[in-house]
Each structure stands twice: as structure tokens, then as C-alpha cells.
Simulated assay, not measured.
Amino acid sequence: MKRIATLLATMATTFCAASALAADFQLGSTELKANQPMSKQQEFAGFGCNGGNQSPQLHWQNAPAGTKSFAITVYDPDAPTGSGWWHWGVVNIPASVSAVAAGSVPAGAVQTRTDYGTAGYGGACPPVGDKAHRYIHTVWALNVEQLPLDANASGALVGYMLNAHQLGKAQLITTYQRSK
């Protein structure tokens, strides 16, 4: 019993230390504010939307030890599809990078296919009159330098690979709504 108690105590300490480290990994933006609406710049241009379709500036800090690369995803869980909507996927961002400028990705990074059917950023475009949708911007710290993905990789495949290689993730959730 004493061995089990010692093992459980060690596991609890390790879990708390890992949780504390993961909590330090943070995502921010000069353009986006948590739980606030995105601007027209981040709205899609097409499907009845007429925004700027520009990816936002993002920056992150305190990545977990051992991070070999980063990835970015933007996902709308409120899209009326039954499976949400992938708006952006970027993989193979070098570990030396800690920010992306608005409308760009770092050299060597790969943008994957969105649910609009093409690679690259696809902005918010919720149905007119629908409730405000949430947009989950996530930066993933990964344990590999590169994922074997190209511009045709689907959101589901990207998500699978990210979950298989994540050391941690940081999120920024925003909203967007189109009025009648």
C-alpha cells in the first residue's frame, strides 16, 4: 500500500507540474480579443460574405519544453454542419517562430485545405441571422519538426496528426455574427 501511495503522489506531482507548464503556453493577438467579435477583415470573401478574408496576427509565448514545431488551426464548432467548420490549418511552422503577421505565414509552413475546399485562410461566414459563432484559434506545440501533410490535407487528417504529436496547445476564442 505504501508503494501505491508513493506512486500516486509522484503521479499527482508530475501531472500538476505538467498542467502548470501547459497553462503557461499562451496565445495572443494585436487584432483579436478573447470572447469578442472579429473584424470584417477576418470575414470570408465568398459564399455570400464580403469581408477581407485576412488571417489575423497571432503571437505566442512559453511553449512547452521540447517543442520542435508549431501549427495553427481555426475552427468554428457552431457551424450548422454537424461537424463544425475548419477555417485555417497551418503546419510545419519552425520552432524558432513565435508570431505570424496578419495575412501571412512563415517561410516553409504549409497551409492545409479548409472546409471551403482550398488551402489557405478562409474567414468567418456564419449564416445571416444565426447566433454568434465561436472561432477557436489554436496554436499547437508539436514534438516533431514536420508533419507529412500537404495543401490537400483535410481538417480531420490535420486534427488527427496534431493530436498525435502535441506537447501542448494555447487557444484564443473569438466570435462573429452576420445580422439580417
Rank of each mutant, 00 (worst) to 15 (best):
V91H: 05
T81Q: 06
V105T: 11
A109R: 13
A119P: 06
Q146S: 12
D150G: 04
A101W: 05
I72G: 00
W88G: 00
F70Y: 05
K68N: 13
N50T: 11
I72L: 14
M161I: 10
A45R: 15
Y75T: 12
L58P: 01
V90F: 01
S69N: 02
N163Q: 12
D76Q: 00
I72E: 03
T114P: 06
N53Y: 02
A102S: 11
Q42R: 07
A141N: 04
A124F: 03
V91G: 02
G129K: 10
V105E: 00
T73S: 11
A45E: 13
Y75C: 08
G108W: 13
G103F: 01
P106K: 02
K33H: 14
T114F: 04
A132E: 08
A124T: 04
Y135A: 00
D115K: 08
Q61W: 13
K40E: 08
V90R: 01
H87Y: 01
S98W: 08
A132S: 05
G46W: 06
G108T: 14
D130P: 14
Q57L: 08
V144M: 09
G159L: 11
Q57I: 11
V105K: 09
P37M: 15
G117K: 06
V91R: 09
G122R: 04
D150T: 13
L147F: 05
P94I: 07
K131R: 08
P94D: 13
V105S: 13
T73I: 09
N35W: 02
V90Y: 01
Q41I: 02
A102C: 10
P56C: 04
L32I: 11
G155I: 00
L162R: 06
S104L: 02
Q111M: 12
M161S: 07
G66Q: 04
P37W: 08
A45N: 12
V91Y: 01
W86K: 05
Y160S: 15
I93D: 04
A153E: 03
G84E: 04
G123M: 05
H133P: 09
P37V: 12
W85Q: 07
I136C: 11
K131F: 10
P126W: 11
A65L: 06
G51H: 11
V105Y: 04
A156C: 13
G108A: 03
D130W: 08
S98A: 13
V158T: 02
L147Y: 08
A34C: 05
F70I: 07
F47H: 15
F44M: 03
Q41D: 10
Q61A: 14
A132M: 07
T138R: 05
P80F: 08
T112H: 03
V100H: 05
Y121A: 02
L142M: 10
S55C: 07
H133F: 09
P94C: 10
R134W: 12
A156S: 15
G82K: 03
K33I: 14
A107D: 10
T81K: 15
P80S: 14
Q111R: 04
Q41E: 07
G46Q: 08
A101H: 05
